[in-house]
Design a protein around this nucleic acid. Structure first.
Lengths: 347, 347
DNA sequence: TTGTATGCGTTATCAC
DNA sequence: GTGATAACGCATACAA
C-alpha cells in the first residue's frame, strides 16, 4: 500500500540531471563529480530509490563464474556441486555463464586444478569458486586472481591466509562441541564415560579443529576421551582402527566419528553383541548410513548441509559481483542434529 | 562454457513466426492456435529456451500480495513476519506490492481479521498470506478468495479442508517424535522413565497433533508418559500446572514442553534442588530461554524456524503467481535441535 | 488468430 | 565530466 516506486527518470527530473548521471552515481568506478554523486545518493536515500536489479542486469554484460571442484569424498562433494548447480539455475536469468570443472582427487589432480585456475585468470572471469582444495600451493593462485580483480570464494576450507573474498564452510568448533554434548547426553547417568574419537585425516585443518573442539566439549559435558584414531579418510584404515580401539579399550562407552568413516564403525558394532549399547555419534548423512540411523546403532549424526554451502557460495558470489553487495570472511553454515525421528528430512 | 542463451527473437526467426506468438505460447490463457503453440513449445524445449523472468516481469503489471497476521504468541509470530518482510525485500525488484496487516489476538481481533480478508478480496489482490488463524470461520473467506482467482497461502496452520493453495508449517508429527527420542536419549540408562508433557492449548490442531506424535514416539523410544497438562498458552496457568505435576508425580524423570510455556517450568526447576537432574526438552528459542539452555536446565529445545516459514510462504506464493510454478499441499519446514553447544546460531 | 509497435528501468556506447 | 540513445528480452494494447 506504498507509493509507486521511483524510477531513474523521476530522480533525474527531480534533480535536473540526466538518467546517465543517476546510473553512474551508483557505480563507484564510474566517473562523476564528487558533489553530484553525493547529491544524487543523498536524494536517492531520501526517496528510497535503489536501481531496479532486474532492469540493470538486463542491460549489463554477462557475468562469468568459474567453478573448480576437487572432490575428496565423492558423496559429500557431489552435494556441494548440486547446491552450486541449483543456485546457478535459479540465477540463470541474470545473464550468468558458469564454467564448472569437476575433478576427482588422484595422481596429478592437484596440478590439473592449478592449471584450471590459470585458465580462469586468463579468461578474465568475474568470479571463481574453489571447492575442496586446502593445499598451500593454491594460495598464490588465489591471490593472483584477486589481484586481477576476480572475486574468489572457497568452499569447505577457509584458506583465511589467502586474499580470498569469502569462504563458505561449517563451524567445526561448534560441531565438535555438539558431538561432545550429544555423547554427554547419551551417557547422562552412566559411570563409565570412556569415549573414543575417529577422525578423518589428522593433518587437514578441518580435523585438527574438530579434535580440538571435541576435547573442549568433553571437558564441559563431562566426557572422558581416552583415544583419538586417525582413519586417514580411508574405509579400510577405519576398519582396522575400530578393531584396534576395542582391543585397547574393550569397555568403550561412546564413539564419535568425525568424518565420512562412520560406515566401517557401524559394521563393526553390528558384529559385537553389545553394539547398540555403545553411544555413537556420527557425521553427515548419506544413503549407506540410513539403516544404521534407523535401527539405532547410530544415536545421532551431525549434518553439515554441504548442499547449502555450495548454494550459498554461488549465490553470495553472484550478489557480491552483480549488486555490489560484498560478502567477506567466513560464512558458517549451521550444523544439524539428525536422529531416526527426523531422518526423513535428510533422505 | 555453454552456447549463448536463445532469446525470443531467435526462436521467432527460427520458426518464421512473430515474437508475440512465442510469448503467447507460454501463457496458457493466451489465444493461439493449438498447433502453433505445440510447435513453439516443442522447439523451445529442444533449444532449452525459457522466457527470461527478469525481462518478462519488467514488462508486466505489478503483483499485489496481502498479508494478514493474527499474532498468538508475539515473539514467535514476529519471526514469521520478519521472514515475510525479508522475502518481500528480496523480491521487490519484481514489481510486487505488499499490504501487511498485523493484528494482536484480543477482543474483536478475529472479526477485524475477517474484514481485512474482505478488503483483500475487493481489491483484487493476486495473492494472500494468512498467518496464525485456525478458526473455522476463516475457511469460507479463503474459499471465496480462491474462487476469485486469488492464491492463498496459510502459515503455521494448515486449514487443509479449505481450498487454500498451499500452507507453510512445521511437521508436528516429526517434532513430537523428536521430543520423545530426545527424552529417550536423556533417560538412556535410567530406570525411572516417568515423563510429563506440558502442552499449549489442547484444542488447537497443532497441539492435538503434537500430543499424538509424542505418544507414538514414547512407545518407540521407551518413554513412560504419566500425564499431559494443558497450560492454555498462559504463563500463569503453566506455573500452576508444573506445581500440580510435581505434587502428583514427585519423581518426574523427564519433561517435554511443547509450546512457548517453557519459561515458568524453567523457573520452577530452578527452585527445586534436583532441577538439573530432570531431563527437559523444550520448544522454540527466544531470548528469555537462552540462560536456561546455557546453564543446563533445558537439555535441548526443538526450534521450528518460524522465520523460514514466513520467508517460504511469501517466496513460494510469488513464484506461484509470477512464474506459473504452483506450490500445493503442505510445505513442511525442518525442525532443528538446539542445545547449549549450538545455541549461538539461534541468538 | 496473428503481427507491429511501445514500454518496462536500467547500463553501455558514443558523442560532446 | 556529462548527456543522448541504443540495446537488454520480454508482454501487451492495438491494429490487421
Amino acid at each position: 500500500m506504498q507509493e509507486k516506486r521511483k524510477t531513474i527518470y523521476d530522480l533525474a527530473e527531480e534533480l535536473g540531471v540526466s538518467i546517465a548521471a543517476i546510473s553512474r552515481a551508483f557505480d563507484p568506478d564510474s566517473k562523476l563529480s564528487k558533489e553530484k554523486r553525493e547529491l544524487i545518493l543523498a536524494t536517492a536515500k531520501k526517496y528510497g530509490y535503489t536501481p531496479n536489479r532486474m532492469a540493470s542486469r538486463l542491460s549489463m554484460n554477462e557475468i562469468k563464474i568459474g567453478v573448480l571442484n576437487l572432490s575428496y569424498i565423492k558423496v559429500y562433494y557431489s552435494e556441494i556441486i548440486d547446491g552450486i548447480r541449483d543456485a546457478y539455475a535459479n540465477l540463470k536469468d541474470y545473464k550468468i555463464d558458469c564454467d564448472m570443472r569437476v575433478l576427482q582427487r588422484g595422481e596429478n589432480s592437484l596440478d590439473e586444478a592449478l592449471t584450471i585456475l590459470d585458465e580462469f585468470l586468463a579468461a578474465h572471469y568475474d568470479g571463481v569458486i574453489i571447492c575442496g582444495v586446502y593445499e598451500d600451493c593454491v594460495i598464490p593462485k588465489i591471490d593472483s586472481l584477486i589481484d586481477a580483480g576476480i572475486q574468489v570464494a572457497t568452499v569447505q576450507y577457509d584458506l583465511g591466509h589467502s586474499k580470498r573474498t569469502f569462504s563458505c564452510l561449517s563451524n567445526y568448533n561448534v560441531i565438535g562441541e555438539m558431538a561432545a554434548q550429544l555423547c554427554g547426553m547419551l551417557l547422562r547417568d552412566v559411570k563409565n564415560r570412556k569415549t573414543v574419537m575417529f577422525t578423518g585425516n589428522k593433518v587437514s585443518p578441518t580435523h585438527k579443529t574438530l579434535i580440538e573442539a571435541f576435547r573442549n566439549g568433553a571437558k564441559k559435558y563431562n566426557v572422558d576421551i581416552v583415544a583419538v584414531y586417525d582413519t586417514k579418510d580411508d574405509p579400510e584404515c577405519a576398519r582396522e582402527m575400530v578393531t584396534r580401539a576395542f582391543e585397547e579399550y574393550p569397555d568403550i562407552a561412546a564413539i564419535y566419528a568425525s568424518s565420512a568413516n562412520s560406515l566401517p564403525i557401524c559394521q563393526y558394532l553390528e558384529n559385537i553383541k553389545h553394539g547398540k549399547d555403545i553411544a555413537f555419534v556420527a557425521s553427515d548423512v548419506f544413503p549407506d548410513l540410513h539403516p544404521y540411523i534407523e535401527n539405532g546403532y547410530i544415536d545421532a549424526t551431525i549434518y553439515q548441509e554441504p548442499y547449502k554451502m555450495g548454494y550459498n557460495a554461488f549465490d553470495k558470489l553472484f550478489h557480491s559481483i552483480a549488486d555490489n553487495k560484498p560478502t567477506s570472511g567466513a560464512v558458517m553454515s549451521t550444523p544439524r542434529v539428525v536422529m531416526s525421528s527426523n531422518l526423513h528430512y535428510y533422505k
